[in-house]
């Protein structure tokens, strides 16, 4: 790892000022950043530790909106009664990620900002447009088993590895960010981006902006939500595919639905059309299978991830069955 300077930011403003300079990176839990620095994928000159900032609260306002600070630990969020009661889907997704130790370190902001786990991105001797724009994409024509089936480009077919973000995308969360120009809100589904021509950009956070927190609007999904993650082993592995499913069911009929998939795209893949198609349908396996077909429209596989064309809809149907209490 290249040597770097380390400082601690004591105010939000000082953090924002610090990251305005090129070569400076924020460090929160460090679980992704240090890993990448050890491999030489990124080599900042300076790290600004933001863990002193008071951004770790979990609270609910009068309208029932849940607010979570960017520095709240993944474990703290997953364990918080407020979260378990109001947004159990988020707790489930968090608990499906990483390991208990890592969740004790990882923060909400860091989790959103984590980079892809694409092997070519990690190996600095391989081509990768995300790491080194213009060098080519190692995964296309290579080992693409973990890669995208939706929204990929001919520059990059990587997936966003987060579980938490899949739930947040489904739950219509909003991201609060702060920069030199002040604060702004980004709808969660617009936070991460598709690779297009610029896979080096994972998200729409502007340079020098700091994530301060996320909010989830009130909803009636608590009773019928489920996060299902399919992986190569039962725990401590990234998703092959995952689904966050949230339903509001009344007398066996679906009144509202929120669906997002993980492991399939460069961003948490929200399934708007499938959601719409579910509304008014009975909460049955039949309905779920129908919308799974809708959800898969436009999917495109590569050499080693063709199985995802079957696994993704299967995961969706299973997640919905769980959410609806059918299993």
């Amino acid at each position: 790892m290249k040597a770097f300077q380390y400082t601690r930011a004591t105010t939000q403003q000082s953090a924002i000022d610090a990251i305005a300079k090129p070569g400076t990176k924020i460090i929160a839990g460090g679980t992704n950043l240090i890993d990448l620095m050890k491999r030489g994928v990124i080599a900042p000159d300076k790290l600004v530790d933001i863990n002193q900032l008071p951004l770790n609260s979990i609270s609910v306002n009068k309208l029932g909106h849940l607010h979570i600070g960017a520095l709240a630990l993944n474990s703290a969020v997953a364990e918080a009664n407020l979260v378990k009661d109001l947004q159990p889907l988020l707790a489930m997704a968090l608990n499906a990620g990483a390991s208990p130790q890592l969740r004790n370190m990882a923060t909400v902001g860091g989790n959103m900002m984590q980079r892809t786990r694409c092997a070519y991105f990690y190996d600095t001797t391989m081509p990768c447009n995300k790491r080194e724009p213009g060098s080519g994409c190692g995964a296309i024509g290579g080992y693409s088993r973990m890669h995208a089936i939706f929204g990929a480009s001919d520059k990059c077919i990587a997936v966003h590895p987060s579980d938490m973000c899949v739930a947040l995308a489904a739950l219509d969360a909003t991201v609060t960010v702060s920069g030199r120009k002040g604060q702004r809100l980004i709808p969660f589904t617009e936070f991460h981006r598709l690779p297009g021509e610029h896979p080096e950009m994972d998200n729409t956070l502007a340079p020098g902006e700091l994530i301060t927190g996320i909010s989830i609007p009130h909803n009636n999904f608590a009773k019928n939500s489920y996060y299902l993650k399919i992986r190569d082993r039962q725990s401590y592995a990234f998703a092959l595919t995952s689904v966050a499913a949230a339903l509001e069911i009344s007398n066996g009929t679906i009144k509202q639905a929120r669906l997002a998939m993980g492991g399939v795209a460069h961003k948490p893949w929200r399934l708007f059309d499938a959601e719409k198609a579910l509304v008014g349908k009975p909460a049955t396996e039949e309905s779920f299978k129908q919308v799974a077909e809708i959800a898969m429209q436009g999917a495109k596989a590569y050499e080693y991830n063709k199985f995802k064309l079957k696994l993704a809809p299967a995961t969706l149907v299973e997640a919905l069955k769980h959410a609806a209490g059918l299993v």
Binding site: M126, Q234, Y236
Partner: peptide, 20 residues
């Protein structure tokens, strides 16, 4: 294409964990 391993880590080469 490169003669190089693409899963030479414990995140990518899976050993059983307790849950398995």
């Amino acid at each position: 294409r490169y003669g190089r391993l693409v899963n030479n880590s414990f995140a990518d080469y899976h050993l059983p964990v307790n849950a398995d």
